[in-house]
């Protein structure tokens, strides 16, 4: 399924055009349908309080998050049922929705409350796994405008940090000479596209040409995969490169879902979206001692925690696999 999203509301038409140009045979799903008819709305209505004069921003944000996750899950479930290539216009931030969906999936996973026939839970987990496998892609559209380009780089960084496969970034519409735009404005727009290309490299960036939305092949940027390499004294370095990271706020941490181990996940907060990356069996027995962020890359150095290693087993020579 290809999710199309636009940084500005006016770009949604371009987003759909770019998606259809990219996959001409795709069925277009209407996300507005998913939201309005979903039970999320009924739940929101259930929170009506007669006589109340204020609504908690947390509550509103929670309902919004629930609606976005529900919409994403519904669309993927419908796309799966259709069994054909589908395009869906997603009116919210895809990165934020994926981040919330993955948090929900992690909650289900950690709490162990998933039953085979538990409806929504199973579908949330299916959607989270599809994102991991790269079956849900993002095509983002932004206008050639300074703040929109910055926002696009943050959205790309957050989405790729969450493991979303990005098919491409379209810049639409470009100012045209035939429409009477002066040369300096056309040049400024082209300079912004160049900056965007450098900012989100290696994600494909294309601009509208001749008033037509660009099309993207399926050679989009693969899911960001972390690497683990062993350095001196049994220390290991977990590293990941995230396009657009240098233009985004970032926080790095570790978390454990299993009290038996010091670390089960690396947690990234990229542009306000939380991404959790599960670590392999070796890093589970290690603790972080240093974090370096350089450009678009993050490197975390781990050292073995002695009480997690049998005396006779050296802490070096682990599996080295990442994101297991």
């Amino acid at each position: 399924m290809l999710l199309v999203s636009s940084i500005t509301p006016s770009g949604r038409t371009w987003a759909l055009e770019a998606a259809i140009a990219s996959i001409p045979s795709a069925t277009v799903l209407d996300s507005a349908d998913a939201i309005s008819s979903s039970t999320a709305l009924q739940i929101a209505e259930a929170f009506q309080v007669a006589g109340a004069t204020t609504a908690s921003p947390d509550l509103v944000a929670s309902i919004g998050s629930f609606a976005a996750v529900s919409s994403l899950t519904s669309m993927f479930t419908r796309a799966q049922a259709d069994g054909k290539a589908c395009v869906a216009l997603f009116p919210e931030s895809v990165a934020a929705a994926v981040s919330d969906l993955q948090s929900l999936a992690t909650l289900f996973d950690v709490s162990g409350i998933v039953a085979p026939d538990s409806g929504g839970m199973t579908e949330v987990l299916n959607t989270a796994m599809a994102i991991q496998r790269g079956e849900i892609e993002l095509l983002l559209v932004c206008p050639p405008e300074e703040s929109a380009v910055e926002a696009a780089m943050r959205e790309i960084a957050a989405a790729t940090a969450c493991g979303v496969r990005v098919r491409g970034l379209a810049v639409c519409p470009m100012p045209r000479k035939s429409d009477g735009w002066p040369k300096f404005i056309r040049q400024a727009a082209r300079d912004l596209v160049d900056r965007l290309e450098q900012g989100v490299h290696p994600i494909p960036v294309q601009r509208a040409r001749g008033g037509m939305a660009p099309s993207f092949g399926d050679e989009g940027f693969e899911v960001c995969t972390p690497m683990v390499s062993e350095v001196a004294d049994g220390q290991r370095v977990w590293s990941i490169t995230i396009p657009g990271l240098s233009h985004s706020d970032v926080a790095v941490g570790t978390w454990t879902a299993d009290p038996a181990y010091p670390t089960t996940h690396v947690v990234l907060n990229v542009a306000g979206c939380i991404a959790r990356r599960r670590v392999d069996a070796t890093l589970r027995r290690c603790v972080p001692i240093d974090v370096v962020v350089s450009g678009d890359s993050i490197a975390i150095t781990f050292e073995p925690q002695p009480d997690q290693w049998p005396i006779d087993l050296p802490s070096s020579g682990g599996t080295g696999a990442g994101d297991g």
């Binding site: 970032v250 926080a251 570790t254 947690v267 370096v292 962020v293």
Partner: peptide, 15 residues
């Protein structure tokens, strides 16, 4: 109470 630990945010060195 036995609860899962919170995220341990780490200091970042920027190069």
């Amino acid at each position: 109470p036995k609860v899962l630990p919170a995220v341990r945010w780490l200091p970042i060195r920027r190069l």
